[in-house]
């Protein structure tokens, strides 16, 4: 048995994902309450190279597992590596609720015989039976789940916990040798098409600027892009704008699109249909810009401007430039 709390350090495009320091924040009080250490686990391609960087994120220990069979992400390969690591290290496991976290988390929990709380947005108690809050019914309600056993798995929604400050001293880094039985892996990744490299990832973005039918056409999104650039924001959209062919489906926010929870969500020319709200209502601060004062989006907005986005958004971009330059 182990009191430790382990964090899966996810690597994307050769970088440690932004959710990782947030997982450190979520994991630290759990480790303290258990009287254990906080450990980062890196898996696969690039893990050895990025381990020293991970060591400064606030972990007590960092381990990495590298193996030729892990060069490309596959759910089976990664899950086997983490299960192997956890069988040796034991304790609690935290992953981000990213597409990789969602893909491997439940299977890992099952293979370790552990309970799991997915899409956690808050820690309610770190006591003997820790409990965690998570949205249900697409954010129309919340439930608090209490852990009934010693060890467990959590997946944490991006941007729900603040990022931990980097530590001055680096944690000790160790290589972990896990017999992977690569010959038993059944999954073949045939092709990976990377999209929007370099641009901010929607689900992890700290600020999202979204456009709806109010942008009127594909070129309407060009009005929003300078604002995204100034703010370092990701570009989102309503489904109607996707269906109208204004923008690629990967930008869609909502019940049938991505769930985002940024600290700032700016909705431009979006009416605020229930299916759209389902993907963004847990944003910390919501701004709505709409010509219609009765648009339902204003009901959940913290700040609103009734006006033409083609006038307001450029003005806003200028103001932010002044503030942030």
């Amino acid at each position: 048995m182990s009191q430790d709390v382990n964090v899966f350090v996810e690597i994307q495009n050769d970088e440690i994902r932004k959710v990782t320091p947030q997982l450190v924040t979520a994991g630290r009080p759990l480790a303290e309450a258990r009287g254990g250490k906080l450990r980062g686990i890196l898996i696969g391609k690039g893990s050895e190279r990025l381990a020293p960087e991970a060591a400064k994120l606030g972990f007590d220990h960092v381990v990495f597992v590298d193996d030729a069979s892990l060069a490309e992400y596959s759910s089976e390969g990664y899950a086997s590596a983490i299960v192997g690591a956890m069988q040796e290290l034991k304790g609690v496991l935290l992953v981000g609720n990213t597409s990789i976290g969602k893909d491997i988390g439940p299977g890992i929990a099952q293979r370790l015989g552990l309970g799991m709380v997915s899409d956690v947005v808050n820690t309610e108690s770190t006591g003997e039976k820790p409990s965690f809050k998570r949205p249900i019914y697409a954010g129309k309600a919340y439930e608090t789940i209490e852990i009934q056993e010693e060890d467990y798995v959590l997946s944490i929604r991006a941007n729900s916990y603040p990022s931990a400050e980097p530590s001055a001293t680096a944690a000790e880094v160790k290589k972990l040798d896990i017999p992977l039985g690569a010959e038993k892996l059944r999954t073949t990744v045939k092709e990976v098409v990377e999209r929007a490299a370099g641009k901010v990832d929607l689900t992890e973005a700290d600020i999202v600027v979204s456009g709806g039918m109010g942008v009127k056409g594909p070129e309407g999104f060009d009005t929003l892009r300078p604002l995204c650039d100034v703010l370092g924001a990701a570009l989102g959209s309503s489904r109607a704008a996707v269906l109208a062919g204004f923008i690629h489906p990967s930008h869609q926010v909502g019940q049938t699109g991505k769930t985002v929870s940024p600290s700032l969500y700016i909705a431009c020319g979006i009416s605020g249909a229930i299916q759209h709200k389902a993907g963004m209502s847990t944003s910390k601060c919501i701004v709505a810009i709409n010509t219609d004062p009765d648009a339902p989006i204003f009901e959940i907005a913290d700040y609103g401007i009734v006006g033409d986005l083609f006038e307001v958004v450029p003005a806003l971009t200028e103001e932010f430039k002044k503030l942030l330059s």
Partner: peptide, 8 residues
């Protein structure tokens, strides 16, 4: 997946 399409 986040930012990519995988064929598996």
């Amino acid at each position: 997946a986040d930012g990519r399409t995988e064929v598996v």
